[in-house]
Design a protein around this nucleic acid. Structure first.
Lengths: 145, 145
DNA sequence: CCACAATGCTATGTAATATAGCAAAAATAC
DNA sequence: GTATTTTTGCTATATTACATAGCATTGTGG
């Protein structure tokens, strides 16, 4: 079934449309992941930030933002939150920039995050029938730019 | 590349994770569609509601909500907005329920919506490499429930 | 008939994302 | 080396989707 078939057949409703299905699947996935992260008091975007600064210790706020497509304006309160929770520290690089680095507690939480996220990702893939599975990520990446 | 490979290789960053890629793809898609619908002053969820009541003229607010997974509480302001825009009317069924029906203007807008959405869906599918394309919707539907 | 469920709704909160603007510092162009 | 432009980090605020709690009324099944 292609989009125009889906639009004019009332069988599947809007769920026959890939764009609509994409939205619904993403919502369900986000709710699932948010639930899993709630137990460690983190939001989805918090965990994404912690994951990227887990690799490098010299990333600035705007670099993190570029990687995750989070705008500078939104990074500020996000990092404030992580700093209040003692998960990160801001360390001056020069008089303008600052590195965002994990604290000890942040490093410990990151281990948990990695476990939770990995399990989540595996559960997600497991729900996709095997023959479609290898095509899923490549298709998404084509849509991401 | 499977999730655990992706989590511990810094090549792809988080975009190697299907869940993260799903979120990013959905965001990009939503922004695109929202932009296309902005020209006719509609939100994505507005257009979804108009599309479902285009098929039947006897749906109540809560039935629409069930189909689209929009909660009753959120249907009220949404329908208010569509009613102010003269796109729908609420017609009493009994003293409790009411049918949500398209006005003449709503019917005209629906034609535009269908055109815009169909074009959007086709553009979306066109961005996915052909070999992955047939697997995309089935995979998403497996994740939706 | 009466307990229970459904309907439509208000009020409110949360999360992700967006825009506009700003001061200071750094990078660059000349 | 000074001048212009860009970058950085930030505040304030708005938008959109979605969530929870509660409520009065009405319909329905035992």
């Amino acid at each position: 079934m292609n989009p125009s078939e889906a639009m004019f057949s009332k069988n599947a409703g809007l769920t026959g449309l890939p764009g609509y299905a994409l939205r619904r699947a993403a919502n369900a996935m986000m709710a699932d992941l948010a639930g899993r992260l709630a137990s460690i008091d983190l939001r989805i975007s918090d965990s994404a930030v912690l994951q990227v600064i887990g690799e490098r210790t010299d990333m600035t706020s705007s670099e993190i933002g570029k990687v995750l497509e989070i705008q500078r304006a939104n990074m500020a309160p996000l990092l404030d939150r992580l700093e209040s929770a003692q998960l990160i520290r801001r360390e001056p690089i020069d008089r303008k920039s600052q590195a965002v680095v994990l604290t000890q507690h942040g490093l410990e939480q990151l281990a948990t995050i990695r476990r939770v996220v990995l399990e989540f990702e595996e559960d997600l893939m497991a729900r996709i029938p095997a023959r479609h599975r290898p095509h899923f990520l490549p298709a998404l990446r084509a849509l991401m730019d």
